[in-house]
C-alpha cells in the first residue's frame, strides 16, 4: 500500500477511501477553517431587508424575503460550503472535477428563486457556462488519465510534463474558471449580486476565491 507523502509541501494526514484519497496539508487546513467559519456565519445570519427608493416617488419601500425562499437558499449555501470543503481537500483529479461541478450547481441554486428578470437572465447564462464547461473539466481530466494512466495527485506529482499535459491543464483551468464564476470577465456575477437577500449571495465570492486558489494549486502539483 503506497501512500501520498509529498505534494509540494508537507502533509499532515490523509483520509483514504481506497482509490480516492482526501488529504490535509497546512494550506488546505487554513482554507477549510475559512470555509467552515464563513459557512457557519452565513447559515446563522438572518436575511437582510433592503430599502429601495425610486426616482419620482416619495416612498421608501422595504423589500421582503419570503421565509421559504430564505430556507431554500440557506440549504443551498450549506451544501455549497460542503462542496467547497471537498474541493479544497480532495486528492483525486476526477473527484475534484465533480466537486467543482457541485459548487457550480449550488451557486446556481442560490439565485434560481429570485423574482427579478435581470438576475434570472444572468443566472441562466451562468447555467449555460456551467453546461459548456463540463467539456473542458471532464475532458481535460480524461486526457490526463489517458496520457499518464492515473488520476491520483500523489502519483501525478512525479510525472514530467509534455505538450498534451499542458493543453489539458489549460482546459482544466478554463473549466474551473467557468464553473467557479471567476472574476475577470464575469459580468454575469455583477448582475447576480444585485439579488436581494444579501448574506447568502456572498457564498459566491467565497466559492470563486476558493476554487481559483485550489485550481492553481492543482495545476502546480501536476507540473
Amino acid at each position: 500500500m503506497n501512500e501520498i507523502t509529498n505534494l509540494s509541501g508537507p502533509i499532515i494526514g490523509h483520509i483514504p477511501f481506497i482509490d480516492i484519497v482526501l488529504y490535509i496539508s497546512p494550506f488546505s487546513l487554513a482554507l477549510v477553517a475559512v470555509i467552515a467559519a464563513f459557512t457557519a456565519f452565513l447559515a446563522l445570519s438572518k436575511p437582510e431587508l433592503r430599502s429601495v427608493t425610486r426616482f419620482g416617488e416619495d416612498v421608501v419601500r422595504t423589500t421582503t424575503v419570503e421565509r421559504k425562499e430564505a430556507r431554500f437558499r440557506r440549504f443551498m449555501t450549506i451544501l455549497c460550503g460542503i462542496a467547497l470543503t471537498g474541493v479544497v481537500t480532495t486528492g483525486d483529479l476526477f473527484n475534484f472535477a465533480l466537486f467543482v461541478s457541485l459548487t457550480g450547481i449550488t451557486n446556481m441554486g442560490i439565485f434560481a428563486g429570485v423574482k427579478d428578470a435581470h438576475v434570472l437572465d444572468a443566472t441562466f447564462h451562468y447555467g449555460l457556462v456551467l453546461m459548456i464547461c463540463s467539456l473542458p473539466l471532464f475532458g481535460g481530466v480524461a486526457m490526463i488519465l489517458a496520457n499518464t494512466g492515473t488520476l491520483s495527485m500523489g502519483v501525478l506529482a512525479n510525472i514530467h510534463t509534455n505538450p498534451i499535459l499542458n493543453m489539458s491543464r489549460t482546459l482544466l483551468l478554463i473549466g474551473a474558471i467557468g464553473e467557479g464564476a471567476l472574476a475577470p470577465f464575469f459580468a454575469t456575477k455583477v448582475e447576480m449580486i444585485r439579488a436581494k437577500g444579501a448574506p447568502y449571495i456572498n457564498m459566491m465570492h467565497l466559492s470563486s476565491l476558493m476554487v481559483f486558489t485550489r485550481v492553481i494549486e492543482v495545476l502546480l502539483i501536476l507540473g
Binding site: 447564462h125 451562468y126 464547461c133 493543453m167 482546459l171 464575469f186 459580468a187 454575469t188 448582475e191
Partner: peptide, 22 residues
Amino acid sequence: LAEPRVVPKIFAFAIAIVLVFS
C-alpha cells in the same frame, strides 16, 4: 462584455481556440 449574454460565447470561443490549436 458587461452583458450576460456575451459570457457563454466568450467561453465557447476560448475552449474552441484551445481545442482547435491542439
